[in-house]
Design a binder for these strands. Structure first.
Length: 481
DNA sequence: TGGCACTTAGC
DNA sequence: CTAAGTGCC
């Protein structure tokens, strides 16, 4: 029986995780449809993520997104209650103190969470609580698509073909206009107590370019469909323009449903170019593929997907060289520009992610895990599925990966995708005075570079040809052994 | 979702 | 001489 203001139903916990939105939220909707009074809770339990507890940039975003969620709930007459973990004990205690008859949540697919949540569901049900989970994050949950042999996909193209052949979208559901509130049980702790926001405010520059939360996500979607979608198939490779959707952090935190993004694209069929719409949908497909792989190959955040690479001769890490890469001081402009963009905005253009990753794993020949870890800590969109897929793909160790010998030349990449050098100049202002061909490769005229860009490293960490050569030698060695 | 050395066609 | 194609890493 649906709840009304006059006769509120029994309480049910709605456990928010990476589904920080009120529209298209199946767990919240299940509570309402079941006639319950939803008690929205968030439980801070970073240790339960195992080796992959969220990084600092991700936490900074989550702080703001939780704040936005609480505002949205309050506008509708409810509010968010925040607690410290462990998750199971906290839920059990809340069930006891609120009298909740049910617990609803939306699924996560990271290995540590899949295990934890399965156990939580089992224990709660064993205690007679109605515990149920839903899909809020994916177009296709990892177990819904299989190859002809009933096995998980390892190659993107057949995976995506299968997805398109089995296409079925969740209907979009507007956020409830009003929510009943319950006064039962503890109120939890203030948002600040979770200490997600950086103490010293190093993230302040992030928020010039991002608005965490459901409202910000919808604005980003609108900005995309009104703007960068036109020409997306080509322009998304251009880091010097706003050529991408910039939806990744919103999708990661569940501030928007992927099917709402698809629905927005579908509405543009006929008025926007099919190539652009298909390319945009295909990028969502890579996100889906990442979750598919992570679920079926749960070791891949830490281990090579292709075990052949376990014998690969990665270079020993020099802490100063690794730090030069991290802080954008390698002496290769497009690499350094990307790493500085990451550091100051918590995000990096995808084309540049590939370039800096190729440089780390090929020219420096460092194990991809060093790059994956740095991205994990610095990206606001850090996502275990996408991060793992991306790094193993570039490193050549992954499923359907670029072959190891596919080594990006950072100078060629910059000339091709940042032809006016504007992206480089934006993130490396000390290079803005360098004339164009030189701005891509300052070492080619050391005297001029010294004069016009005295603050930039004149001596690249590694010679590009030597780096490429060393990588190919190590790869050859792997193949004959 | 490459790069490069080398070839060949065409001027 | 350059552009386009090819095979390999």
């Amino acid at each position: 029986m649906p709840a009304t203001a006059a006769s509120p139903g029994p309480p049910a916990l709605v456990w928010f995780r990476n589904d920080l939105r009120l529209a298209d939220n199946p767990a919240l909707q299940a509570a309402l449809d079941g006639g319950y009074t939803p008690i929205p809770v968030y439980i801070h339990a970073p240790d339960e993520a195992g080796d992959w507890r969220p990084g600092a940039a991700s936490d900074a975003w989550r702080h703001r997104s939780l704040d936005a969620l609480d505002s949205g709930l309050r506008q509708r007459g409810s509010h968010l209650r925040r607690f410290f973990g462990p998750s199971l004990a906290t839920l059990q205690s809340l069930v006891a103190t609120t009298g909740a008859e049910a617990v609803f949540w939306n699924r996560r697919y990271e290995p540590a969470f899949e295990q934890r949540d399965a156990r939580i569901k089992q224990v709660l049900r064993g205690q007679g609580v109605h515990a149920e989970s839903f899909n809020s994050a994916l177009l296709f949950e990892p177990w819904t698509l299989k190859t002809q042999q009933g096995k998980p996909f390892r190659v993107f193209t057949p995976f995506w073909r299968s997805a398109l052949a089995n296409w079925r979208l969740e209907p979009c559901m507007e956020a409830p206009a009003r929510l009943p509130d319950s006064g039962e049980g503890p109120e939890g702790v203030p948002l600040q107590a979770l200490r997600l926001a950086p103490a010293r405010g190093w993230d302040s520059t992030f928020w010039e370019s991002w608005t965490p939360g459901e409202e910000g996500a919808l604005q980003a979607l609108e900005a995309f469909t009104d703007g960068a979608l036109r020409g997306y198939a080509q322009q998304r490779d251009r880091p010097d323009r706003i050529g991408t959707s910039r939806l990744s952090p919103h999708l990661h935190f569940g501030e928007i449903a992927p099917w709402r993004v698809v629905a927005a694209l579908d509405r543009l069929r006929g008025s926007a170019a099919d190539a652009d719409l298909d390319a945009a949908r295909r990028e969502l497909g890579w996100r889906e593929f990442g979750y598919h792989l992570l679920h079926h190959f749960p070791q891949t955040p830490d281990l090579n997907f292709d075990p052949k690479f376990n014998a690969f001769d990665w270079a020993q890490v020099s802490p100063s060289h690794l730090q030069a890469w991290q802080h954008g001081r390698t002496g290769v402009p497009i690499v350094d520009a990307g790493m500085r963009e990451l550091w100051s905005t918590g995000w990096m253009h995808n084309r540049v992610r590939m370039v800096v990753a190729s440089y780390l794993t090929k020219h420096l020949r460092y194990h991809w895990r060093h790059g994956a870890r740095w991205f994990w800590d610095t990206l606001v969109d850090a996502d275990l599925a996408s991060n793992t897929l991306g790094w193993q793909w570039v490193a050549g160790t992954g499923a359907d990966a670029a072959p190891y010998f596919r080594i990006f030349n950072p100078v060629t990449q910059a000339q091709k995708f940042d032809p006016e050098g504007r992206y480089i100049a934006r993130w490396l202002p000390e290079l803005a005075a360098l004339p164009l061909p030189l701005r891509f490769a300052p070492w080619q005229d050391p005297a001029t570079s010294q004069r016009l860009a005295p603050d930039y490293p004149l001596q690249p960490l590694v010679d590009l040809y030597a780096g490429r050569d060393g990588a190919l030698k190590a790869y050859r060695q792997l193949r004959v052994s």
